[in-house]
Design a protein around this nucleic acid. Structure first.
Length: 427
RNA sequence: GGAGACAUGGCUGAGCGGCUGAAAGCGGCGGUUUGCUAAACCGUUAAGGGUCAAAAGCCCUUCACAGGUUCGAAUCCUGUUGUCUCCGCCA
């Protein structure tokens, strides 16, 4: 969420940001008018409150000194103020809810070094690692390989649940589990993250904090329950909200969390996209990285977080490239996002496997997550960062496809073997 | 699921309908003392909003949340949420 005063004082900046993100700017058209009306109402309401408070004090004094008649006439005077007060309260609530609706629906301002562009075509590659393997046989995709090896069963998943679900069996399930453990071990032991295992369901307040709500309601799986819980679409939601409504001490920052969770996404509006295989599922596994930092460190921490995610691909020997998303392609709450894209031989292209975002104070303001600098100054909002480290299902695909052999088997990368009982290959 | 107790500032914890935005302690910050550290002592220390070019000042709001009673609510009433204890059930 953007700061109300910031929006008031930087309307042009906000309007430009909206345009660059392909957002309509008409939201802002009546901002100035609404805001000054709102403040007028507040000023009058506060004045009346001040008069009421003063009168009430006088009444108390009058009654104590026995001047009951004077007290009674004061009471009548206060009663007269009450009608106007109620009217103003009504207006104030109306204005405040309109302003907060408006603010809640404004996306973050992209950082200055984010390329301006309409969509993913304007994304800019910042680096590339590894080289795509040369195959001397016709490559298969992960569905063919997985089904041939009996480690992937899509048909029965459809029977049991529906489309966009999958079942992993035998070495396929073990490979998934090995990947999870491998990623968590690297991030906790080598990168300094604290592992956390959060709830897989969250309430609406948390979803507001990490900007799934109010705009992206239909992307979630909601629990049919009066409590309004939803299945988490990413561990970013429970983990980033961990310290919401709290004031941290500067010495406790930065905080690094890593969490393995399943993720649940309704994928509404993505009909027909990536329908084959495991690329786009309603349920997938992900190891998430979350950082809470001081404002002045978030850019550097963002680079480090992205490098931490890339490190997993390097250790697995999977070629990838990293792109910085253009203004038109980046997420609602992000100031700057790097996507890491892994090489998929069957598609002869790079596919997203991680998305690492610096949200600045945008989420912290929504969830009221602050810190206080040494010296007892005013609390400030922390900066929140998140990234996949990595999407496990897509890593599974990348391993299966990049390490496939001519005989249909799949070699397990050496670094993964300790996590899968020493297994060297599947098939 | 049943019964009861509770919800106060960064933390612990007092609080009679008006003198309580809130005692006290801890922590933080500033200072005195000290060769240094520690201790001791003194002072200071909630958040959000409005007004203002800005600061100061002034004003408003906030004692879980939402309502209500009252001239006046942390304090009384109702509902909601959460926490704790006991019973039941359960991986």
């Amino acid at each position: 969420m953007l700061d109300l005063n910031f929006v008031r004082e930087n309307l042009d900046t906000v309007r430009t940001a909206l345009r660059n993100r392909n957002f309509p700017t008409d939201l802002l058209d009546d901002f100035a008018g609404m805001d000054s009306e709102r403040r007028k109402v507040i000023a009058e309401s506060d004045q009346i409150n001040a008069r009421r408070n003063a009168a009430s004090k006088e009444i108390g004094a009058l009654m104590q000194s026995g001047k009951l008649d004077d007290a009674e006439s004061k009471k009548v005077e206060v009663a007269g103020l009450k009608d106007r007060q109620a009217e103003l309260d009504e207006q104030r609530k109306e204005f405040e809810s309109r302003m907060s609706d408006l603010l809640a629906n404004l996306p973050n301002i992209p950082a200055a070094d984010v390329p301006v562009g309409e969509d993913e075509a304007a994304n800019v590659e910042v680096r590339r690692w590894g080289t795509a393997r040369e195959f001397d046989f016709e490559v298969s995709d992960h569905v063919d390989i997985g089904e041939r090896l009996g480690i992937l069963d899509l048909e029965r998943a459809v029977k049991i649940t529906g489309s966009r679900f999958a079942i992993l069996n035998g070495a396929g399930a073990r490979l998934e589990r090995a990947l999870v453990n491998f990623m968590l071990e690297v991030h906790t032991r080598e990168h300094g993250y604290t592992e956390t295992l959060p709830p897989f369901m969250v309430n609406r307040k948390s979803l507001f904090g990490t900007n799934q709500l109010p705009k992206f309601e239909e992307d979630l799986f909601h629990i049919k329950d009066e409590r309004g819980f939803a299945l988490i679409p990413t561990a970013e939601v429970p983990v980033t909200n961990y310290y919401s409504d709290e004031i941290l001490e500067a010495k406790d920052l930065p905080k690094y969390f890593t969490a393995y969770t399943p993720c649940f996404r309704s994928e509404a509006g993505s009909y027909g996209r990536d329908t084959r295989g495991l690329i786009r599922q309603h349920q997938f596994e992900k190891v998430e990285l979350v950082k809470l930092t001081m404002p002045e460190n978030s850019e550097e921490e963002h680079e480090k977080l992205t490098a931490n995610a890339e490190r997993i691909l390097q250790l697995l020997g999977l070629p990838y490239r990293t792109v910085v998303l253009s203004t038109g392609d980046m997420g609602f709450g992000s100031r700057k996002t790097y996507d890491i894209e892994v090489w998929l031989p069957s598609q002869n292209t790079f596919r997203e496997i991680s998305s690492c975002s610096n949200c600045g104070d945008f989420q912290a303001r929504r969830m009221n997550l602050r810190f206080r600098r040494a010296g007892g100054s005013k609390p400030e909002f922390v900066h929140t960062l998140n990234g996949s480290g990595l999407a496990v299902g897509r890593t599974w695909i990348a391993v299966i496809e990049n390490y496939q052999q001519a005989d249909g088997s799949v070699v397990i990368p050496e670094v993964l073997q300790p996590y899968i009982g020493g297994l060297e290959k599947i098939g």
